[in-house]
Amino acid sequence: MLGRLNNLFGKILLIIFIIIASNSAFSEENKAEFLKNDWSFNGVFGTFDRASLQRGYQVYQEVCSGCHSVQHLSYRNLAENGGPEFSAEEAKAIAEQFEVIDGPNEDGEMFTRKGRLSDKFVSPFPNIKAAAAANGGAYPPDMSVLVKARKGGAAYIYSLLMGYEEAPAGYELDDGVYYNKYMPGHKIKMAEPISDGIVEYADGTETTKAQIAKDVTTFLVWAADPHLEARHKMGFKVFFYLIILLTLVYLSKQKIWSRFGSKVEKEEEEVFDKAERVVTEYEGEDPNTFK
């Protein structure tokens, strides 16, 4: 009886799974597939395109930094391995473009000075409230880890930048609110930030919206994950090493266990012999002569 109950339960579970699966497939959630791109940093062999990172920094600086901070980045990061790899002089020159608040001095006052490599990137606003107030109540998020803070990561950021469209007919949009295909809820308070030719690249790369979006996204991926390349490199070495050690340990284990195996065979033979004797004794025979 219990056996038949099992079968029934199995069937019920199957039905449950089918319900869930179909539910997920037809849910009304925002299921817009993100725009595809061949990101150089994707996949196990991923690395950053240095030129793209440098262009992306330029886009951040000229387009985004007016509203968005990257407070966890330091100017020296621009010269470190695994990133845009500006030269030390270039990075120093970049830092010196900015005024940094320092102090207090001997008179107890705060003062400003030229940025140094050791300084963090300056923020456009002194605090979150000031940033929100200057942007219609919507705080432009700090972008240091934005790529990791959004489902979809780089694909989402890129899609969002490219995803400004006319709202569908009858869609209500307040002042200062725009329609974006990829923003959850479709309403975003940032006006379309990039367009064709909005920056001029020193290396002559064409400045289409898509290219600009790709470069700044790449920059933001690095900003969120500056050790990506080191991590992948180390991952390889670790894997390679583990496979070797695993093989050696496996072979050692087999070798050691085979010793025990022969011991057991010997004992099993003894058991057979013993059983033999018992049977012959039972028959009334003499186990020593087997007669």
Binding site: Y241, L245, L248, V249, L251, S252, K255
Partner: peptide, 9 residues
């Protein structure tokens, strides 16, 4: 085999 395993380890 054992020496190699120890060394790699």
């Amino acid at each position: 085999l054992f020496t190699a395993t120890y060394t790699v380890g």
